[in-house]
Design a protein around this nucleic acid. Structure first.
Lengths: 227, 227
DNA sequence: CGCAGACTGAAACAACTGTTTGAAACCCTT
DNA sequence: AAGGGTTTCAAACAGTTGTTTCAGTCTGCG
């Protein structure tokens, strides 16, 4: 309870946003958890949206700085030569999943982030885009250089799929328990597993795109709204 | 406007839930869109939660029936022999992504489903588990038979990752636009791309799990809460 | 000390949430 | 045509939301 009110609110908000989501988390829940007055949120941050944005920004800028630092290290080591795909994947997704393994707060935040990436909330998406812009540009360039044989559009989709796998890897056991009983996820094992999966998908043979739709759909579902 | 009030509410609710999420969609938005009275929701469904459940159930039971039917067809064709991994992936994920390509409503629903799978809402998760139970059991059995060399826990994680990739594939262009400009997603091309990626990940070499943590983390981030 | 600025506190605000009510309208069978 | 069950409607309900207000308290500096 030592830190100042602003920090306590930030920590409490992060914790509760993970548990309940953006809309279901109320300011009264946050201020109670933070042992602060209700008005303190609007005093220190201006609004609930601004508070949420602050919660994201605090972790996200640091995360993306780490990703770029990791990429810089690999590129310095390579000295102009294209990086190995594994290195680029490590720099982007490895850093993220290691932050997700961090007990000291990063863990819960990453689960929130993965969920929010596809959320239709306008204001979140807008500053997420700004926050991601630089790191995306850097990694796109690195990947295109490392895999010149992969068409750019194809790669973008694969990167998108990889983000999905990462998101689920982090949101983790909660959703996985839907598939069956599972042990507590060992961070190192999770890291190795995701890495193996991602690189397998990234390096998969290019799909054979039938120029005109090959009409593979035997019974294409259409207009099946049940009674 | 022809269909009865109940159906109109169901359609309007599905459409709005996709756009705004579960909590942010209000009954007044739904009933306005459906051109029905506010009380109609509680009259026909009993509560907002029951309405949401009905929205999910309508599409989800059909989707999982299709998955099982596809698996049945492959297994009948194989006649007791293990299926090829590609066939199992096709039966589970191919059916889903084809439903996601369906303009007649399935499209929007699948985007909702992918988002909800990791949502922390209690009541959604509970009936999702029930709705998925049978299909999960069937596909787990088929996969274990097809890939006896893959440890069960390992496979469960890979299946989880695949769900993540599917979810992002479906939520699709909205989030992808964050990575850069992208063309309108051709359903057939998306299908081929995801399939290739999934099988690449599924068949990736097993990760080398250092029995004791190999301390691969050079600078393991720990307790980095920014100021 | 004195007093300005930063912060906290309790209470109230209007707006909106899901739900309930009871009367009106409708539809279909006898 | 009469009646009974089903559906619609406008209005109101109690509860919760984010935000604001304004008096009070604290802190540091002259």
């Amino acid at each position: 309870m030592e830190p100042d009110t602003r920090s306590r609110i930030l920590d409490a908000a992060e914790k509760l946003l993970v548990q309940h989501g953006l809309d279901a988390t109320t300011l009264r829940m946050i201020t109670t958890e933070a042992q602060a007055n209700l008005a303190a949120v609007n005093y220190h941050f201006g609004s609930k949206e601004a508070l949420i944005e602050a919660v994201f920004r605090r972790r996200l800028t640091w995360l993306n700085e780490q990703r770029i630092a990791a990429l810089d290290a690999f590129e310095a080591e390579a000295g102009g030569a294209p990086l190995k795909p594994r290195q680029i994947v490590e720099a982007f997704f490895g850093v993220a999943i290691r932050m997700a393994a961090d007990k000291g707060g990063g863990q819960s935040f990453m689960r929130l982030l993965g969920r929010t990436y596809t959320e239709p909330s306008d204001f979140v998406r807008s500053f997420l885009a700004a926050e991601y812009a630089e790191v995306i540009a850097r990694f796109k360039a690195a990947f295109f250089k490392a895999l010149p044989d992969v068409p750019q559009e194809e790669f973008l989709w694969r990167f998108h799929f990889m983000m999905g796998a990462l998101s689920y890897a982090i949101s983790g056991a909660d959703a996985l328990r839907l598939l069956g009983p599972i042990d507590e996820p060992d961070p190192d094992a999770l890291y190795a597993r995701l890495m193996s999966f991602l690189i397998g998908g990234l390096r998969a043979p290019l799909p054979t795109l039938a120029p005109a739709s090959q009409a593979k759909a035997a019974k294409k579902p259409r207009g099946k709204r049940a009674a």
